[in-house]
């Protein structure tokens, strides 16, 4: 890469870190248990807003996976989310007053906390509706994966966001706290994803899936990005550049092989289409706090006069990670 561009990216990374430093003032510690973080702990970072209903299962899912400590930023919830989180022994909570959008969709807040607490740790950055699936996740804890990544000198782990949806109209079945969202959202699209490469950052840009098929058929170019790199051996000099879609330094984005082979990768099962989807979409549309003036939510809104049905007769019912690996939606790569 030419040195001018490389230097530009370096400056950009510094700017992200500077932003995070400035935005630290918006953060207010509600429950800081970070003293209990041990050197080899795997940390989960997330920004949430009104996720009280989803959080019990979310925490259980990731505790079972082997996450040792949760660091969560609450952005002005009014449903009791912060109190619920503060009661958990392995969750540190900050509240953030301010614009989700102007904090680069929560990235700035998290970046500051990552810089402070995550240096040298494996960190998983996910939303409250994203559930990581990696090869052998039913038999091996996430430490097995991170140990193996360490032994292989790999610093970052790539995933595809797999939108899960119900059969029938969205919201038909009510979600209960503690319930796995995937008892309701059992279905996904197996093979309609498009990929291109971002030549500046070096990451892949993946679009498609049911959101492109149903909500963005008029403007597929605007369909949301489905590539995420949520698991990184964090260093205080690193920065997420756009949500968890891409990172700087750009070497961290090379989670794919270009010579024909498959690297090890996973999926983020996306539990977006639960019964609160329509209310959330309406609210977000009003707040205009999401990416590109909530264009994604505008895409939904046109269809939201009546609850959409995403399911079609080509939909596939989710079974386990092995099914996703056979379908080519993730790969064991070299990990056996």
């Amino acid at each position: 890469m030419n040195p001018v561009k490389a230097y530009q990216l370096r400056l950009r990374r510094k700017r992200f870190l500077l932003r995070a430093w400035r935005k630290r003032k918006q953060l207010l510690g509600l429950s800081d248990k970070t003293k209990s973080i041990a050197p080899d702990d795997i940390l989960l970072f997330s920004t949430v807003r009104n996720e009280r209903v989803r959080l019990p299962f979310f925490l259980k899912y990731y505790r079972d996976m082997g996450i040792n400590h949760f660091i969560i930023v609450d952005n002005e919830s009014d449903d009791g989310t912060p109190d619920f989180l503060a009661d958990q022994s392995d969750v540190s909570v900050w509240s953030a007053k301010g614009s989700y959008k102007r904090s680069r969709f929560g990235v700035d807040w998290l970046l500051w906390l990552q810089k402070k607490y995550a240096h040298g740790h494996w960190t998983l950055v996910v939303d409250a509706d994203e559930f990581l699936v990696y090869p052998f996740c039913d038999t091996r804890p996430i430490q097995a994966l991170t140990d193996w990544l360490d032994a292989s000198s790999i610093r970052s782990f790539g995933t595809l966001v797999l939108d899960m949806y119900p059969k029938g109209t969205v919201g038909q079945t009510a979600y209960q706290p503690d319930q796995s969202p995937f008892e309701i959202l059992q279905w996904f699209d197996t093979g309609n994803y498009t990929i291109s490469k971002n030549s500046l950052y070096g990451n892949l840009w993946i679009q498609g899936g049911p959101r492109a098929r149903v909500f963005f058929s008029d403007e597929p170019a605007l369909a949301p990005a489905l590539n995420k790199i949520p698991l990184v051996k964090w260093n205080r000099r690193y920065a997420y550049a756009s949500s968890t879609h891409m990172l700087l330094p750009r070497g961290l984005n090379l989670v794919y092989d270009q010579w024909g082979g498959e690297k090890t990768s996973g999926c983020l099962l996306h539990a977006k289409f639960l019964d609160d989807f329509i209310d959330k979409a309406a609210e977000e549309l009003e707040r205009k706090e999401h990416y590109a003036a909530s264009r994604e939510y505008q895409g939904y809104a046109e269809n939201l006069q009546k609850p959409p049905e995403i399911w079609c007769d080509q939909s596939e019912k989710y079974a386990n990670w092995r099914q996703l690996e056979v379908l080519g939606l993730m790969s064991k790569g070299n990990w056996a």
Partner: peptide, 28 residues
């Protein structure tokens, strides 16, 4: 089992493009 892992990592599944396999032209 382990030989399959080596083939998967070095040659991959033909005609597959995904988040961890994006061959440059000619190496598909």
């Amino acid at each position: 089992v382990f030989e399959k892992a080596v083939v998967r990592r070095t040659r991959g599944r033909p005609g597959l493009r995904m988040q961890s396999r994006f061959p440059i032209r000619g190496r598909e």
